[in-house]
């Protein structure tokens, strides 16, 4: 059974000019020990999906359809008080900017022990021992000495490690990492990716890695979900999606990433830009930018269709005839 199983969720923002559907009919699941990369442009709805799981959608946004199952339990519409318990104990959250997750007024040791004590019944000394163990696990050198340091005394990469330790406090079964490496330098980025990978492998944590950076996905993820304009465009094994993308958007996206040693005069690119939520075209949201769009593409949203035997699915009418996801 998948740790997290999202099926057919829609997230809507009612505005006075009509309802904006920010995420539409999106399904994905993550197994224990697996890292699912969720990739998309800014505004595609990738972060919203993560926020919906942990019940942190900013009002007036809300889930209007579909279910979110955590270990088989429906958590789609849990009240905030219940959700808070789950957020601490079952789901760890890592955001882009480590400073927003850490309280500048408390030592990191205190923040860690506090979090542990809220969710676990143990003595203060045990909590401290556990906190030091966690700091050690996320690769903070000399954790006993760093225990009483304040967040500002850490560098960017070390802070992100502390945030990861904080997310790990209560042995979560799911980690949602929203752009965890975007604020970091390349050299540090690699360290954090390695850490996330090891954690999911060793502890069997399901990880949802939300990012706009295909390079990070290629390095860290097992499977990848490509989101375009609030809809799932393609999902599949990371190597298949990167090496043989099936959806025209994924293909265009992969082509437009400059690569070292490519020596191209002009980079291939997708014309135009992702439509705004209030101006999404009829049918496939990508059709105005797609070179191969057919008449059906302009009329009907494509369902997810299996494009091969290796569990790669693309929401594109070009694969009509294949198995459809229901």
């Amino acid at each position: 059974m998948a740790v997290i199983d999202i099926s057919n969720i829609s997230i809507e923002f009612p505005t006075r000019r009509g309802v904006l559907t920010a995420v539409e009919n999106l399904s994905l699941s993550i197994e224990a020990g697996e890292i699912l990369g969720v990739v998309g442009e800014s505004g595609a709805g990738k972060s919203l999906t993560g926020n919906a799981i942990v019940g942190l959608l900013e009002p007036p946004g809300h889930v209007t359809a579909g279910t979110i199952l955590l270990n088989g339990r429906d958590i789609t519409h849990l009240p905030e008080s219940e959700m808070r318990k789950i957020r601490g104990a079952k789901i760890g959250v890592i955001f882009q900017d480590p400073l927003t997750s850490l309280d500048p007024l408390y030592t990191i040791g205190r923040q860690l022990t506090q979090t542990i004590l809220t969710h676990k019944k143990m003595s203060h000394a045990e909590a401290k021992a556990r906190a030091i163990e966690l700091l050690n696990e996320v690769g903070i050198p000399a954790p006993e000495q760093r225990f009483d340091a304040f967040p500002h005394e850490f560098s960017g990469g070390m802070r992100q490690r502390v945030v990861i330790a904080l997310a790990l406090c209560c042995d979560p079964c799911l980690i949602i990492a929203d752009e965890p490496t975007t604020a970091l330098d390349v050299s540090v980025q690699a360290q954090i990716i390695d850490l996330l990978k090891n954690l999911s492998r060793e502890k069997g944590v399901a990880t949802m890695l939300v990012t706009h950076d295909m390079g990070v996905i290629a390095e860290a993820a097992d499977r990848v979900a490509v989101i375009y304009s609030g809809r799932l465009a393609e999902i599949g094994d990371v190597r298949s999606v990167i090496d043989a993308p099936k959806h025209p958007y994924t293909r265009g996206l992969m082509d437009s990433i400059p690569q070292i040693g490519q020596n191209l005069k002009t980079l291939p690119n997708i014309i135009g830009a992702m439509p705004r939520l209030d101006a999404r075209p009829e049918g496939c949201a990508f059709n105005p930018r797609c070179a191969k769009s057919k008449s059906i593409c302009r009329q009907q949203t494509a369902p997810l269709i299996e494009t091969g035997s290796d569990g790669q699915w693309a929401a594109c009418w070009a694969y009509e005839g294949g198995n459809k996801y229901v």
């Binding site: 050299s187 980025q189 690699a190 390079g215 390095e219 990167i242 090496d243 070292i260």
Partner: peptide
């Protein structure tokens, strides 16, 4: 060496 490699 630290650049993520798309081709893995």
């Amino acid at each position: 060496e630290a650049i993520p490699d798309l081709k893995g």
